[in-house]
Design a protein around this nucleic acid. Sequence first.
DNA 1: TGAAATGTTGGGGCG
DNA 2: ACGCCCCAACATTTC
Length: 482
Amino acid sequence: MVSPTIDWFRQDLRLADNPALAAAVARGGPIIPLFVLDASAAGAWAPGGASRWWLHHSLAALRDALADRGAWLVLRHGPATEILPRLAAEVGAGAVMWNRCYEPWAVARDTGIKARLKRDGLAVESFNAALLAEPWTLATKAGEPFRVYTPFWKALQARDVARPQAAPTRLSPAEAVAGDDLDAWGLLPTRPDWAQGLRDTWQAGEAAAAARLGAFLDEALDAYVEDRDRPGVDGTSRLSPHLHWGEIGPRQVWHAVVQRAHAKGQEPLSGAAGKFLSELAWREFSMHLLAHFPELPERNWRAAFDAFDWRDDPAGLAAWQQGLTGFPIVDAGMRELWATGWMHNRVRMIAASFLVKDLRIHWRAGEAWFWDTLVDADLAANAASWQWVAGSGADAAPYFRIFNPVLQGERFDPDGAYVRRWVPELAALPDAWLHKPWRAPADVLAGAGVAVGTDYPHPIVDHGEARARALAAFAELKQVAS
DNA sequence: TGAAATGTTGGGGCG
DNA sequence: ACGCCCCAACATTTC
């Protein structure tokens, strides 16, 4: 009789295209699916509030999906370094399987656990479920990690993406193993329960992720090139939180998109399909960057930025967080984030540019806020994206690229659908003034029932002046660096 | 995956 | 008919 296999779930909360699970099934014995709530190893990067909400529902969905196939998800909390060996001994496991994580703290932890379990005589194997290509398999001709996106994307396109495996239909149950009650983990907010907007917006779990992908392919892919930049249009995939927790994997997304393009007689790597896959490749690029540069979340990727003159501005930071900057497109984004745990990507760039360039507040403050509030909070994507906007990151926007929040609003939310939804106090303003209410004539404001300074804040900075100050600060930095 | 300043061009008004 | 100026539209450069 084959000894039990522990399948340690982490950020791979799915049954399909799950190589660790497939290996556990192939081994033949009973399967013990395990999830460990291990805040100790992650330090500051333990999941934030919105992420914990998602995790709760995703685990519930995984638990039910496993039960449908005859297996019982075991929940334990505490340091995984202690829990894995203890559970293995407790159930007489002969093997432990998992899919790899790439957060530096996880790599360090998992390396130790693998060594320990092997020393104990167990078979331990790890697999790739989260990436199209492992970070150590893509390199420049010089053997270096890619530091620029475009050549990275070209190299990735030249690779074959493995076909996803189907979910196992039947799992051999193990004898009952004691575990925690999910509800007792307290992942959901209480007092206050701020998650109503999240519940209204999202459905966690593998089945919901697959449905979301299907809906995107059916309804939005064709218009993706234009609509992806329109926050007032449902033009993006919204797969990010599902991808973060591994409810769906990038290989599954890749092949579904390629298949859809082929069915329409289109080339999958050009047009809308290619554009969407290139966005998936930005996720991949971020993950590779983190794997190669583990300090990405904490330190400027370009060390020259260490000398940058950031401002300490608690009031400005608070206004930004609360969506009270006086710039409608920025405030709409920050309020969407607070309400739903998600923000449209175009608006993330605008809001992030405003924080680091107009307010000149350190990108790490933005990174920390997003970490706590985003349902798709991902260490690699969050760190790489903030550094990209700040100009300190890999292949970053040049420092002089400063978004004008009024022009961005007018260009990408021309009919004001997005601002009116999230900044309802401005809803009655005509399009012409919606993105710059402080410039509207008095009779227009009166007609719309808007008093700037009372119903909606005055801009907390003058963008023209803020832009000039940011350019001056960056010019100074360049002198220090040279 | 910018914006603003500066330069160039060409049509129309006008003397 | 011609030159001059204005300025919108577009292009290029600079930040």
